[in-house]
């Protein structure tokens, strides 16, 4: 974990205020702007800010507004498809499942982008991340006949666009996971 003490106090205070403002805004909305609720809210905003600074001292990334819009549009459209897909599979008498464990060669490098990718694909049709090791994302797929490679590359491009990142030339491919029972041995 990076030493936050090396940074200037001004940066740390600015970061603290930014995060406190975000948590305060969330509380303000959740408490429906009731002034009396700050009695409970203020201590928790403070605790959340301290926890956030402890867990991720430095953010080290930016979000591009237009990229965020494109990501949001993509996410809403695809997660609706994901919900429909799994709901239909659940209620159809034939239970149309053909699961497989697949590995995807990541083209995104930064940790935060990989985490967002793993979280995102878990709400899209038929894919569920089950961990990242080295440059490989392992995922459980509900039905091997789904176009997983194409959809993974599309999500990765949206995440790269959101953070303004470049994708590596390597990766972007799918292979079956050699070890059935997962990555405990790898």
């Amino acid at each position: 974990m990076p030493e936050s003490s090396k940074e200037s106090p001004a940066i740390i205070i600015r970061r603290l205020l930014e995060r406190a403002a975000v948590f305060a805004a969330v509380w303000w909305v959740v408490a429906e702007a009731d002034p009396e609720s700050w009695l409970f809210g203020a201590p928790f905003v403070l605790l959340a800010t301290v926890a956030s600074l402890k867990l991720t001292p430095s953010r080290g990334w930016r979000i591009r507004p237009l990229g965020a819009l494109r990501y949001a549009a993509f996410f809403v459209h695809q997660s609706v498809a994901g919900g429909f897909d799994v709901a239909l599979r659940a209620v159809r008498p034939s239970l149309p499942l053909d699961p497989e464990v697949l590995r995807y060669g990541l083209r995104l490098e930064p940790e935060h982008a990989r985490v967002l990718l793993a979280d995102t694909i878990s709400l899209l049709p038929g894919t569920l991340s089950s961990g990242i090791e080295e440059d490989t994302l392992t995922m459980h797929v509900l039905d091997v006949s789904l176009p997983v490679a194409e959809s993974m590359r599309a999500v990765e491009e949206r995440v790269a666009d959101l953070f303004g990142l470049d994708l590596c030339d390597t990766g972007g491919g799918i292979e079956a996971c050699a070890i059935d029972e997962g990555g405990a041995e790898r």
Partner: peptide
């Protein structure tokens, strides 16, 4: 997990 996360979200 697929069923829980995706269907509940929608």
């Amino acid at each position: 997990l697929h069923a829980l996360t995706k269907a509940d979200n929608l």
